[in-house]
Amino acid sequence: MPHHRPAEPDIQRYYSEVFAEADRLHRTPQGRLEARRNQVAALREAARLTRPGGPVVGAVISRNAALIDLTAQGRVDERTRRLLLGAYATGVNDPETGFTTAYFHRPEQVVEEFTATGLPVPRLYGVEGPLWPLLDALDTGPDDQLFHDAVACAAAFEQDPAVLGASAHLLAVAPA
């Protein structure tokens, strides 16, 4: 069977159109409501497929991720700062910021989505911890002491409600 791949411009155009439509829908109240319904439906299906008592796990991008990450990279100017503050306020990112177009959650929204499915309140974890932008800015790797100290810091704070949103990603776990 011959291997066929569409020409590169066709692939790029296709994904650009798909992401533009998803972004357009996500920016409307109706689109956000539909996205939430889809997230709840996906969690409900995960719970249905999980053995009783088994873990249902969800991962989301933190509401703070874009502003923290792009600021730490020195990629924020007055125009992008305005867009990033809008994403922080609404959870909907403008792709012009150069950051992903996914919805950004607050910790309490993750809890609401889990409980809307009938699952118990999930345990929430901050994945990277509050020092992740520092590690990136200093190009710190697993062989550096600062990396180990940052991991220990992340472990100490991983379930602290006051610090959860400082992680780029949140992990939620509830029994089915």
Results as ranks from 00 to 15, higher is better:
Gly31Asn: 10
Ala59Trp: 10
Met1Gly: 15
Asp136Arg: 15
Leu124Tyr: 02
Glu108Phe: 03
Glu8Leu: 12
Ala155Asn: 07
Thr90Lys: 10
Gln30Ser: 11
Leu83Met: 14
Ala89Gln: 10
Pro142Asn: 08
Arg24Asn: 10
Tyr15Val: 13
Arg82Asn: 01
Ala116His: 02
Gly118His: 06
Ala154Trp: 04
Gly91Lys: 06
Met1Gln: 12
Ala47Pro: 13
Gly126Ala: 07
Val110Thr: 01
Arg27Gln: 15
Leu85Tyr: 09
Leu170Tyr: 09
Ala102Gly: 05
Val163Asn: 05
Val121Asp: 12
Ser16Gln: 12
Arg44Asn: 04
Thr97Pro: 01
Arg106Ala: 04
Pro9Cys: 09
Gly86Ile: 00
Asp94Tyr: 01
Phe99Ile: 01
Thr97Arg: 06
Asp77Ala: 05
Ala42Thr: 13
Glu112Cys: 02
His4Phe: 12
Val121Asn: 03
Ala72Ser: 15
Ala65Val: 00
Arg13Cys: 10
Val163Thr: 15
Val60Thr: 15
Leu170Lys: 09
Asp160Ser: 14
Ala137Trp: 03
Leu67Met: 07
Asp139Arg: 15
Asp136Val: 14
Gly74Ile: 05
Val151Ile: 14
Ala22Glu: 09
Trp132Ser: 03
Phe114Ser: 00
Ala47Val: 13
Arg82Ser: 11
Glu8Cys: 04
Ile68Cys: 06
Val60Ser: 13
Glu112Arg: 08
Ala41Tyr: 06
Gln73Trp: 04
Trp132Tyr: 15
Pro161Lys: 09
Thr80Gln: 02
Gln109Ile: 00
Ser62Phe: 09
Arg123Ile: 06
Gln145Asp: 15
Arg81Asn: 03
Thr80Leu: 03
Gln12Lys: 14
Val40Cys: 05
Glu158Ile: 02
Val121His: 05
Thr97Asp: 00
Leu84Ser: 03
Leu70His: 07
Gln30Lys: 11
Glu78Leu: 06
Gly74Ala: 02
Glu17His: 08
Glu108His: 08
Asp69Ala: 12
Leu43Lys: 13
His169Gln: 12
Arg75His: 11
Asp149Glu: 12
Gly54Asp: 09
Gln73Phe: 04
Glu45Gly: 05
Pro122Thr: 01
Ala42Leu: 11
Ala35Tyr: 08
Glu112Thr: 03
Glu128Met: 06
Arg63Cys: 05
Ala7Ser: 12
Asn64Ile: 00
Pro120Cys: 12
Gly31Lys: 13
Arg81Leu: 15
Ala46Cys: 12
Asn64Met: 07
Leu70Lys: 11
Gln12Asn: 11
Arg123Tyr: 00
Gly86Cys: 04
Gly165Thr: 09
Arg13Asn: 10
Val110Ser: 01
Pro122Arg: 00
Ser16Pro: 05
Thr90Glu: 09
Gly74Asp: 09
Ser167Tyr: 09
Asp136Ser: 07
Arg27Leu: 05
Leu119Lys: 06
Ala166Thr: 14
Leu43Phe: 12
Gly98Phe: 04
Leu49Val: 08
Thr71Ala: 14
Tyr125Ser: 02
Phe114His: 00
Asp23Pro: 01
Tyr15Pro: 08
Phe157Met: 13
Leu146Arg: 08
Gly53Glu: 13
Glu96Cys: 04
